[in-house]
Design a protein around this nucleic acid. Sequence first.
DNA 1: CTGAAAGCGCTTACAG
DNA 2: CTGAAAGCGCTTACAG
Lengths: 339, 339
Amino acid sequence: MAQDKVTSLDVAKRAGVSQSAVSRVFTPGASASPKTVEKVKAAASALGYRPNMMARAMITGKSRIIGLIVAYLDNQFYPLALEGLSNALQAQGYHLLVFTASNAQDRVTEIVQDLMDYQVDGIITASVGMSNDLTARCAAAGIPVVMFNRGQDETEISAVTSANVAGGRKAADFLMAAGHRHIGHISGWQGSSTGRDRQRGFLGALAAAGHVPTHVIDGMYDRQIAGDAALTMMDSATPPDAIFVGNDHMAFAVMDALRSRGIRIPDDTAIIGYDDVPAAAWAAYDLTTVRQPVNQMVQATTELILAQITDPDAPARRIEIDGPLITRGSAPQNQRTKT
Amino acid sequence: MAQDKVTSLDVAKRAGVSQSAVSRVFTPGASASPKTVEKVKAAASALGYRPNMMARAMITGKSRIIGLIVAYLDNQFYPLALEGLSNALQAQGYHLLVFTASNAQDRVTEIVQDLMDYQVDGIITASVGMSNDLTARCAAAGIPVVMFNRGQDETEISAVTSANVAGGRKAADFLMAAGHRHIGHISGWQGSSTGRDRQRGFLGALAAAGHVPTHVIDGMYDRQIAGDAALTMMDSATPPDAIFVGNDHMAFAVMDALRSRGIRIPDDTAIIGYDDVPAAAWAAYDLTTVRQPVNQMVQATTELILAQITDPDAPARRIEIDGPLITRGSAPQNQRTKT
DNA sequence: CTGAAAGCGCTTACAG
DNA sequence: CTGAAAGCGCTTACAG
């Protein structure tokens, strides 16, 4: 069943040319006479021949495979990024070998090892921290790495993020302008750069205006923890009239939790999230949020990794992309000043 | 920078053995004396050697890569499936090469071609129909294919789905038992087996009880279309007091649309979805839905594809996994009978 | 158990 | 432009 494995030699025989000629016809920068091209193409399609990428990869050292390490596919932002990355790379003739991983450091080591075994041309990590050791190994092996939606200060490794500090600032400025004076913060995981940067921008802007947050709790990017944190705040002596939540995924949980207590949004408490995932626009949440421009981030990541693959000496770069605050019902403009 | 490319020959020299000996030490079913193993392992780790998967793949004809074709990553069900599939396969030493694609038939042809170029050991398609031609080509090339969450009648190709007909029936029985008599249906895309099967089960159960649906509209697995369909139903002469929606993703849109009109759920209209994605349990929706047991589906898919890779003569199988109806607030039990 | 040798399916100098 | 030949890094009979 199946006379599989049609090789370039088979095509060569049928076309009456050498095996090298066949190879040249299928190699982009090749030189072959129109006549040869024609004969080879005819024979190839008759036989159903396609060059073996593995063999090609072994010789050229280019697999045209890019490793992607992701975690948390329950946060809508990442599937969207994955889809965008896959599409953008596909258009350039590259493909994504996906590895799902938690943030556990040891697993990441193992995974990067696996990735390297596959001779991937590059690695994109989304929502995973990379140790310096790992970074060093990739550099030694000449494998470009780009971190997506995560920065890492200590190492000189490329990273693409949104302008998280500025974003946190926007959330604070917006809330203060809307007249809020009792503002809480349920942050993103403080073990991540996104969580830290957004918090830094947020608290910085508050402090600059002489304000102090009612509460600051690490939501760990977890629904349960975030929801509980919100209730803790409301049960305190100084319940906030607005909460900035470190990402949309947690903000939805916070809204669910508050509503379960009969707390009205935004009347009793306004909510701002971060990401602007599709569900933020759904009527049930109608969430005011700072947008992470996922398409631009995907494009920058793609360009960066491709540039580094093309030129191994290309310097690591850090790209920050600014995103607007999207005003929706969960935190309207001039809420308190209308009173 | 980087003395990359440590080959088995380098290790052999350092260990004082032949290159074949090195290869044997790294080949699972090999035979090597303890002394050889020790010397080779020492040399290998000193040099940082790891076998080149590409070279290995070329010889053995096994890449340990499985192609995954997905679409619609905005429907939470698929990211979850992707994550599960990736984890399960990773545990078996396989990895997923991801291709995102719409259902456009031509693109799929092209993609499968790409996939075959990479010498993938198998292909899993999620939410994509495969033409007979494509199926034939894969069979000819000896590449196992498993369709995930989609069946296809005409071809003898493996498929794993939930028990969609039974699921549709459950939705109908539940709604009738709850006392509903004016029941509408916003179906999944009728170009898909899931959309058709759920509808068939649903309408069949209704008919068996002597009931006729108030409306049947194809929601195309699209939020906008589904929401509009719901409003169309409510604006008609016979507004339904319950709607069965073809999947959760559309059901959320339907709930948003109805609420925007001030229609109360479930008091005015009860809603049932299909999938039981995580968001169905979120308080804002609290959606009654028929669960697709994603973990079991993932496991069955993994076992099936691995079995077919191991034994090329393994017959194609169709596996249906039954899932329970999960009762939540959007469609309570005995709703009308309580009145 | 182990080494020498052939070969997987290609690309790429090397001479024409 | 084109063919013969070497070689990419491995695995796997084949003889010891």
